[in-house]
Nucleic acid binder design. Structure first.
Lengths: 198, 198
DNA sequence: GAATTGACTGGAATGTTATTTTGGTCACTT
DNA sequence: AAGTGACCAAAATAACATTCCAGTCAATTC
C-alpha cells in the first residue's frame, strides 16, 4: 500500500475517490456506474481497477472516509473538561446530525428502504458499528474514572445509541416526535438516571 | 366433494373468521385470497361481503382478535401481589414470546421484510401500539403508587418496549445475543436502575 | 323476499421474451 | 510502466402477454 500522498502531476487515485464519493452520495450504490465514475474523474475505466479491485472495494473506501469524518466531528466536539454525560449527549447530537445531513447516508438509507441493496445496507451498518465502538471506548474510560456504573461497554454503547435513536423517532411514528431539548432531557432520564425510585 | 362438516347456518360469520385467521397466519395478507377463505369456510364468496366490507376490514378484525389474545395472556400473567418491575418483566417476556410464536405475527413480519406489504405492516404496528398502550396503563398506576418516578407513561412504555426488544436482538445483529437471564438482568440495569453512579 | 351463491369483470400482479446496461478484462497506445 | 476504452458475459430493465383476484350482482335457494 502506498504510504502518503505523493505529489504526482495528476493524482489519479484521489480523482477517482473524489468522483466516486460524489456519485455514491448523489445516486446511491447501485445507480453509480463505473463508467460514470471514470468519466467524472477524467480517467479511463481501467485506471480505477489499478487502485481498487472492484466496485465494492471502492465503495468500502468511501464509507471508511465517511467514518473518519464522523470520528473527526466527534473529536472536535469532545471537551475533556466536561463530565461524561455532557460529552456523550453533545457527541450523539453532533455526530448523528452530521450523519443525517450527509448526502451519502441519506441516499443509502433511501436505497435500503426502496431496494434493499445489500451493499448499501452493509455500508450503513458499518457506520453504525463504528459509532458504537467509538462510544464504547469512552464508556470504558468513564467507568474507570468512576463516572459510570460498571457494565459491558460495548452493550452499553449499543443501548445508548438505540435509546437516543428511539427518542429521535427514527424508528417508527409510534410517539409524537420530541424537540431537541426534550430529547436531551429524556435521554438523561431514561438512560442515565433510570426509572426506579431512589 | 365435501366431507360432511355439519352446516350451521347461523355460524357463517364465525366460520369466515376462523378460515380467514388460519389463512392469514399460513400465507400472510396478500397471498390470502377471498376465494380461498370462502372455500375453506365452506361459504360462498359473496357471503363474506355481507359481514365485512372488504378484505382489509376482515384482516383488521383478525388483528383485533390477536390483540385480545395478547391482552388475555398479559392479564393471566399479572400478579397484583408482585412489585411493578417483576410484573413488567414477566409480562414483556410472556407477551412477546407468545407474539413471536404466533403464526400470524411471524408470517406478517416475514411479509413486511420480503414485500413491504403496507397492510401487513399496519397490522404489526397496531399490535405494537396496543402493547405500548397496555404497558402505559400499568406505568401510570405504578407512578401513582410511588413505585416509579414520574414521567410520561406513554413515552416510558414505548421506551421500555424498545429497550427490551433491543436487548433481545430483534433489531440488528450488532451485539452478541443474550440468553434469557441476561436479558432480564440487563433490562433492569439499563431501564430501571440507570447508568449513573449513585 | 331475505339470504346465499358463484360466474363475471377490469385492473393489477406475474410470467416471458427482447433489449439495454454495466462490472470487469485486456490488447493496445502513450 | 501507466493508462486507456472497445469488448464481453451477466445482469438489469423494458415491453408485452398472460394469469389472478377483490369485489359485484343477477340468479338461485330456502
Amino acid at each position: 500500500m502506498e504510504t502518503t500522498t505523493e505529489r504526482r502531476p495528476t493524482d489519479r487515485r484521489k480523482q477517482v475517490l473524489e468522483a466516486a464519493s460524489r456519485s455514491f452520495a448523489a445516486f446511491g450504490y447501485k445507480a453509480t456506474t463505473m463508467d460514470q465514475v471514470a468519466k467524472t474523474a477524467g480517467v479511463g475505466k481501467g485506471t480505477i481497477y489499478t487502485f481498487f479491485a472492484n466496485k465494492e472495494e471502492l465503495f468500502e473506501q468511501i464509507v471508511k472516509d465517511l467514518i473518519a469524518e464522523l470520528k473527526a466531528v466527534a473529536e472536535r466536539t469532545l471537551d475533556p473538561a466536561l463530565p461524561f454525560a455532557d460529552n456523550l449527549l453533545n457527541i450523539l447530537q453532533r455526530v448523528l446530525a452530521y450523519r443525517d445531513r450527509h448526502g451519502l447516508v441519506v441516499k443509502l438509507s433511501q436505497e435500503v428502504k426502496e431496494f434493499g441493496t445489500p451493499m448499501a445496507n452493509g455500508g450503513l451498518e458499518s457506520v453504525e458499528r463504528s459509532i458504537i465502538a467509538y462510544i464504547a471506548g469512552h464508556v470504558s474510560a468513564a467507568i474507570e474514572k468512576g463516572e459510570l456504573r460498571a457494565s459491558d461497554p460495548s452493550l452499553t454503547a449499543y443501548m445508548m445509541l438505540k435509546m437516543y435513536l428511539a427518542l429521535t423517532a427514527e424508528g417508527g411514528h409510534l410517539h409524537t416526535p420530541l424537540d431537541g431539548e426534550r430529547v436531551l432531557a429524556s435521554f438523561r432520564f431514561y438512560c442515565l438516571e433510570g426509572l426506579a425510585v431512589r
